[in-house]
């Protein structure tokens, strides 16, 4: 893998104001994404995982400026995305495409597939007009559909086929980076496997880079090179796939992994059942945001916010935000509940 930095996110914050009171002033903020930094290298797949409300989708949307970030810095291929004006940004979006979760809601029901793909190519001006027809046929075959189906409307396709169309649309402008926001979550497993294989093939053949946002750790293990784990707007752990799955460090990631049902009835495993629910991101817990549910939390966790750090026994790229990660690893810090 080349180590060229394609996407660099620094100190990204995305606060959504809550208006209220007589004058409609901002009375508080939903801190959906709160100061996160990471880098995506060319040709790799980085996944962001976490439960609802952790800020994974918001991160994807902020990078594309579908929601204007509150603060931070997003560099894409050497260009500062946040400083671009509307026209320049639109041009830049040629290189950054997004595929959404719901293949029913993200396609215009009044456009045929061919019109949709044509429009994308027209806006980004990637293929000359007289060659577009041919390109559309190529794209259809590429994603496993018949070229004649391009004249059909979205409602004539099944869920899996619609997701293929979403991918065809993203690919139509020759992007460098695709942000896949729960792109396979709505699909049945047999279809999901088809789409995952398709995406992996494109990555090899077209040298694509993926930022893959998902709650499904099975899917993430299958597709990723590196993994970012988020909890309540913060990154709690980041590392290579292998080290995350085989040398997991953060108590939250451990609980998350142990909570997933294993499709093997004979495999006995220890399950960490977390108490309670995810707290509200409006007034997130002080210190470590996970302390309200963490079996290891102490007073220090309630007061001081941990920073991401690497310790000598971990892989080089592996970082964890936990005060007691070393002590837990060495068995010196015991569970409180």
């Amino acid at each position: 893998m080349s180590q060229k930095e394609l996407l660099k996110v620094e100190n990204l914050k995305q606060y959504f104001p809550i208006k209220g009171g007589v004058f409609g002033r901002t009375i508080n903020n939903v801190k959906a994404v709160d100061n996160i930094s990471f880098t995506v290298y060319e040709g790799e797949t980085v996944s962001i995982v976490g439960e609802s409300g952790c800020g994974k989708s918001t991160t994807g949307r902020s990078i594309l400026r579908l929601d204007e970030p509150t603060e931070g810095n997003v560099q894409f291929d050497g260009v500062d995305l946040l400083s671009l004006n509307k026209r320049k940004l639109r041009q830049k979006r040629k290189d950054l495409q997004i595929i959404f979760q719901d293949p029913y809601a993200s396609l215009n029901p009044r456009q045929t597939v061919s019109q949709m793909l044509n429009e994308a190519m027209e806006i980004q001006n990637v293929v000359p007009k007289n060659e577009r027809r041919k390109r559309i046929a190529e794209l259809m075959e590429l994603v496993g559909l018949q070229p004649y189906q391009a004249d059909r409307f979205p409602h004539e396709f099944s869920g899996g086929q619609r997701q293929r169309i979403g991918i065809a649309r993203a690919l139509s402008v020759d992007p460098k980076l695709i942000i896949a926001d729960e792109a396979v979550s709505a699909l049945d497993v047999s279809i999901q496997a088809q789409i995952l294989n398709l995406m992996k093939r494109f990555q090899r053949e077209l040298n694509l880079t993926y930022l893959f946002i998902s709650h499904d750790l099975g899917v993430v293990r299958h597709i990723s090179d590196r993994i970012i784990v988020m909890y309540l707007g913060k990154i709690v752990e980041i590392g290579d796939k292998k080290s995350i799955f085989e040398n997991v460090q953060h108590p939250y990631t451990k609980a998350l992994l142990s909570a997933i049902p294993v499709p093997d009835p004979e495999k006995k495993k220890e399950r960490i059942i977390l108490k309670g629910d995810v707290p509200s991101p409006i007034n997130p817990p002080t210190g470590c945001r996970f302390h309200t549910r963490c079996p290891f939390a102490t007073d220090k966790c309630r007061k001081e916010e941990p920073v991401l750090r690497n310790l000598d026994y971990m892989e080089e790229n592996h970082q964890v935000a936990c005060h007691y990660v070393k002590q837990i690893h060495d068995g010196e810090h015991k569970q409180v509940y």
């Binding site: 497993v189 496997a193 299958h222």
Partner: peptide, 24 residues
Amino acid sequence: VGLLNSLPRHDIEQEELIPIKGTV
């Protein structure tokens, strides 16, 4: 068998998924 082969698993490393062809 097709269902089990197409399932991406978090507990083991899989080389590739073997999907069921086509749709219902």
